[in-house]
């Protein structure tokens, strides 16, 4: 096998644009490639994806591999693992980086095992060890209670990165790069699963992941009714509503509002956590917030360890007065 060289990014697109995670991937991968003194490539897999190559070059890729096939229109494990596996064997990159998304978390481990190597998922820090030139991958473990740094001996080293953990690359349209088209070589019978339907949850107002203000509630809110009050405050602040896991499990709010390790990973400017204890699992999802405000009647609640401002009181009395004052301030 040829010597492993270079960093490869699996680029994801949505609605004919490279997605936010791809800009973050390119940001961190460019740095790793420069540290190694090696090249950076990006892979575009799908149907009609070739038009995205220039955008990926502007974001820092030296070379783009385009695998374009009608059979790759939708993500299907069998198809994507097959084409990525073939490409990795052909190009022999040192490192492959994907986003910790619905696609990345499914594709990365199976691709790694196909290539007889190993993956490390959901990384929040990546670095090159100067001596061994191996990738050191740091990720939260034990629901965010601890952090761990891993490395693998086999190549390629495959990792996924957590959303909002790395700075996005700035596009530079003067950059040059080469585009290589790769045959998918797939037969319909290679794909054992069939995608029947894709259901997108309609979001009213601002998406949780994109909001600069998030008002979030925990178990202490106690009811769907209580969340209505939080939603009103969120609207007032032109923000989004979030929740920890118990309110989602209890059906007070949609499970898509869950902030945490198995929910949304967010990094708003302001995060207002109401009646929410702040489990490590939850903090994993919101610790990227620039400012956290905690309202909780328990002074020992873990959320105060992560917050910049806190109120120890019953949220039922704090929130109406807070909302009134906020309304006065933002309208005045």
């Amino acid at each position: 096998m040829a010597e492993s060289k270079g960093v490869m990014v699996y680029a994801e697109a949505s609605q004919d644009k490279l997605s936010a995670i791809t800009r973050e991937l390119m940001g961190c991968a460019r740095k790793l490639a420069d540290d190694l003194g090696e090249g950076l490539s990006a892979v575009l897999v799908g149907s009609d994806v070739a038009s995205l190559a220039q955008e990926a070059i502007a974001l820092g890729a030296d070379r783009i591999y385009v695998i374009d096939d009608r059979l790759l229109k939708d993500y299907q494990t069998d198809a994507y693992v097959a084409v990525m596996g073939k490409l990795a064997q052909q190009v022999t990159p040192r490192i492959i980086i994907l986003g910790q998304t619905a696609v990345g978390r499914d594709l990365a481990p199976r691709l790694a095992f196909r290539l007889e190597t190993a993956a490390t998922l959901d990384c929040v820090e990546l670095a090159i060890d100067a001596d061994s030139r191996r990738l050191l991958a740091t990720r939260p473990v034990y629901g965010g209670n601890a952090l761990a740094t891993f490395t693998t001996e086999s190549q390629p080293q495959i990792v996924t990165i957590r959303a909002k953990a790395f700075s996005p690359a700035e596009p530079d349209t003067s950059r040059q790069g080469e585009v290589t088209t790769i045959e998918a070589g797939l037969r319909p019978e290679d794909i054992r699963t069939k995608l029947l339907e894709r259901v997108t949850e309609e979001v009213e107002g601002i998406r949780l992941e994109e909001a600069s203000v998030v008002v979030s509630g925990g178990r202490g809110i106690g009811s769907a009714q209580g969340f209505k009050q939080l939603e009103e405050l969120a609207k007032l602040l032109k923000g989004a509503l979030g929740a920890s896991r118990p309110p989602c499990d209890n059906g007070w709010v949609s499970e898509h509002l869950q902030v945490g390790i198995t929910g949304k990973i967010i990094a708003p400017d302001l995060y207002i956590a109401v009646a929410l204890s702040g489990s490590s699992q939850h903090l994993s999802g919101c610790s990227g917030a620039k400012n956290i405000v905690a309202i909780n009647k328990d002074p020992e609640a873990n959320i105060f360890r992560a917050a910049s401002w806190g109120i120890v009181s019953d949220w039922k009395r704090v929130l109406p007065a807070f909302s009134d004052k906020v309304e006065e301030l933002v309208s005045g």
């Binding site: 190597t117 891993f150 109120i311 007065a321």
Partner: peptide, 28 residues
């Protein structure tokens, strides 16, 4: 195949400023 090099606890700064007041409404 994966080697654990280091395991540690994240440091939380504990810089929370508590907002006081004579009543929850005043704190708000």
């Amino acid at each position: 195949r994966t080697r654990l090099l280091k395991l540690w606890l994240p440091v939380r700064e504990g810089k929370c400023q508590m907002i006081e007041g004579d009543s929850p409404e005043e704190q708000a």
